[in-house]
């Protein structure tokens, strides 16, 4: 009976009346939900606020969620309104069942649809491009020749005024080389807070993907390729690292916790790493953008192996890590 009443009532309303009602409900919900998305949900969206790139990505996710909210609400409101008002009563004889009126050829709807979707998509395109531009790739791998680079970047990693960290993926672990510190290689990632860091990401075997989740950095690690990503102003704290590309049996084991440290602590750590790995340095290949394994066994090309570090300008190992508040002064390279 209630259905019949609702149906009769709806029949008395014109299409414009229905549209006005739907629009009003949608408008009220939008005015309530969009601020909630921006101010309540937004601060909790990934990847967090641990770097400039992460903060901007969180802002981007908030903008996208805010833009999507009215669209989602319109769909839900329309479906709910249609179910309530245009549902055919259960006791309707089969011979009276009919389709709804077609709306094809309605110039107003078509124009609104094309204009609204085009404006939305174009606005997002402009917004996204601007974010990539001003944020130097927004933490993503930008290939070996990034279009947008921060001040101090150099195509030669050793000449860069940014801290360059080479991320090396291999089945199944990450290692890191620091070309400005004698090419020392480590199995943990530590970077200084407040600086701009350039990640040169590569692989020794299959495709991996370096994902420093809370820093907002994600770059594919391809064999034979250098994929560069930037991160600015990281905050002191742990860094959650994963491999984001299914790379074999222990893909899931390529999880690691790195650390963003104060400059003095980073200086002490990198000095300690040089001491720890000093004897190994001569066995490492000369620092390169990427390393090409031999085809027969998959090993490093021996021609890339450096001569002994003592002959190539590497400083003697520091006697002990000495904390310093000064900015890092890159050590001479091993090659």
């Amino acid at each position: 009976m209630a259905d019949t009443k609702a149906s009769e009532e709806s029949k008395e309303l014109t299409d414009r009346d229905h549209l006005r009602r739907i629009g009003l409900i949608w408008l009220v919900l939008t005015l309530v939900c969009v601020p909630l998305v921006i101010f309540v949900l937004g601060p909790h969206l990934p990847p967090g606020t641990d770097s400039e790139q992460a903060r901007n990505q969180q802002e981007d996710n908030t903008v996208l969620a805010a833009v999507a909210t009215p669209v989602l609400l319109f769909i839900w409101v329309y479906i709910g309104y249609a179910v309530k008002n245009w549902r055919i009563p259960a006791d309707t004889p089969v011979e009276e069942l009919q389709d709804g009126p077609p709306i094809r050829g309605h110039r107003g709807f078509q124009t609104a649809w094309i204009v609204i979707t085009s404006v939305t998509v174009f606005a997002l395109f402009v917004f996204g491009t601007q974010e990539l531009w001003t944020d130097y790739g927004s933490g993503t791998g930008s290939g070996s020749s990034p279009v947008w680079t921060p001040a101090g970047y150099s195509t030669n990693a050793k000449d860069s005024k940014l801290l360059v960290v080479q991320v090396i993926g291999q089945q199944w672990r990450w290692t890191y080389r620091f070309p400005q510190y004698g090419g020392v290689e480590t199995d943990t990632l530590v970077i200084p807070a407040g600086k701009t860091v350039q990640f040169d990401v590569t692989s020794l075997d299959v495709i991996h993907s370096f994902w420093a989740i809370n820093l907002g950095v994600k770059a594919d690690a391809n064999p034979g390729n250098n994929n560069i990503a930037f991160v600015e102003d990281p905050s002191v704290g742990p860094v959650d690292i994963r491999c984001a590309e299914l790379c074999g049996t222990y893909h899931g084991a390529m999880a690691q916790t790195g650390q963003v440290e104060k400059q003095a602590d980073f200086d002490a750590w990198i000095a300690g790493q040089i001491v720890l790995h000093y004897d190994l340095l001569p066995q490492l290949p000369a620092y390169a953008d990427f390393y090409i394994p031999q085809t027969d066994g998959g090993y490093y090309d021996p021609s890339q192996v450096t001569p002994p570090a003592v002959d190539s300008g590497l400083p003697p190992p520091p006697p002990a890590p000495a904390p310093s508040s000064a900015a890092p002064s890159p050590a001479p390279s091993s090659s």
Binding site: E185, L204, L280, Q283, L284, P302
Partner: peptide
């Protein structure tokens, strides 16, 4: 034996 793909693994840890 043979070389390792990454000589970083030439050391104990």
């Amino acid at each position: 034996g043979s070389p390792l793909r990454n000589p970083f693994m030439n050391q104990t840890a």
